[in-house]
């Protein structure tokens, strides 16, 4: 992998974490490749943070193993693993300046002063905070604090960077900006990033691969487009994006709202055509969201491009819904 940083591969083998009778992480197997941006996505309580803390060394393992570049690190304490970590709420040292925060991992390793100074300058430049070195964390905005946390976690060239919902505290607009910066930094350093989030848009826009987690298990692993276009389970289809679920005989199909076309009654032409009554229309600027009651399918959500879709159809109108055969994805019935 190209990049100014270090990078390593992680192999999680049959990882289990139990608290008493509760299984937080249930037999997780995962290969994280050198230099990739991997996102653990799931609702709260899905085990994604526990899994990250096990990689970091802050949670001990009930059973299973973790390999870094083929070497087991399961028994290694957190401070020996050399992983960078960005915490929820950043966990900056409030009594140190930005420079001292970033220099911390190098100074506890007793590196020479000149080397530390040069490295801190480089990191400040990487996160665009060159003029903020002498400020204290509380004098910075949330986004700036987040960048300091990132610089601090990267400055000792860790093979793996673990990020625990690092953007959770930022407002939506800032979050999108920081997502782009984070992605850019990942490209520049080339370090393996393991990113935990419950925000599906964040996962889709940043990741090389996404791991969808639910109830301590991996539901599905894949690139963002693989997961979006070909979800395998009901959970994957509903957690990542929205889906209509069509029950046909003993199979379930997922159909994305934007893959359905809406036409005037009797004019619908497609492999699949059904007729229904518009229950509600909601305007979202770029698109219109219709809820359409279809007798044989129930309520179906349809997204229509607001600009190309023409005049909105009024509530109570009967319409035709059509979609291509490839639009509906057959799901695996979840083992119960």
């Amino acid at each position: 992998m190209a990049g100014i940083g270090n990078s390593g591969s992680l192999h999680l083998k049959s990882l289990v974490k139990r608290y008493g009778g509760f299984t937080a992480v249930d037999n997780v197997n995962l290969e994280i490749e050198r230099g990739e941006f991997l996102t653990l996505l799931g609702p709260s309580g899905s085990g994604k943070t526990t899994l990250l803390l096990m990689m970091a060394g802050f949670q001990d393992i009930t059973s299973g193993d973790i390999l870094l570049d083929g070497q087991s690190i399961a028994a290694m304490p957190a401070e020996k693993r050399n992983f960078g970590m960005v915490f929820q709420g950043y966990a900056l040292f409030p009594h140190m300046t930005v420079r001292d925060n970033i220099a911390y991992p190098l100074s506890v390793r007793k590196r020479p002063k000149a080397e530390i100074g040069a490295k801190v300058d480089e990191m400040l430049d990487l996160v665009h905070l060159t003029d903020f070195g002498h400020r204290f964390p509380k004098e910075l905005s949330g986004g700036q604090q987040q960048r300091v946390a990132l610089a601090r976690a990267l400055c000792f060239a860790p093979p793996v960077l673990l990020l625990d919902e690092p953007l959770g505290a930022l407002d939506k607009k800032l979050r999108i900006e920081v997502q782009a910066q984070l992605k850019e930094i990942h490209n520049r350093v080339g370090t393996t990033f393991v990113f935990v989030t419950h925000d599906q848009e964040e996962a889709l826009s940043m990741s090389d691969r996404i791991v969808i987690m639910n109830h301590g298990r991996i539901e599905q692993v894949g690139t963002p487009s693989e997961l979006y276009q070909h979800p395998r389970t009901v959970f994957a289809a509903s957690f990542l994006g929205k889906s209509n679920f069509l029950h046909r005989k003993d199979a379930v199909y997922a159909l994305r709202p934007e893959k359905i076309d809406l036409a005037a009654a009797g004019t619908g032409q497609g492999a699949n055509t059904v007729s229904g009554v518009v229950q509600s229309v909601t305007y979202f600027g770029a698109m219109l969201k219709y809820q359409v009651q279809v007798p044989e399918l129930g309520e179906i959500e349809v997204d229509v491009d607001a600009w190309r879709g023409g005049t909105p159809v009024a509530e109570g109108t009967t319409v035709d819904l059509t979609w291509a055969n490839t639009a509906a994805v057959r799901l695996e019935i979840e083992p119960k």
Partner: peptide, 17 residues
């Protein structure tokens, strides 16, 4: 904040440090 102490360890500091 306990996370600050975790952060210190994750950055390679020993317990004494």
């Amino acid at each position: 904040d306990g996370r600050v102490l975790q952060a210190s360890r994750s950055l390679g500091a020993t317990g004494t440090q």
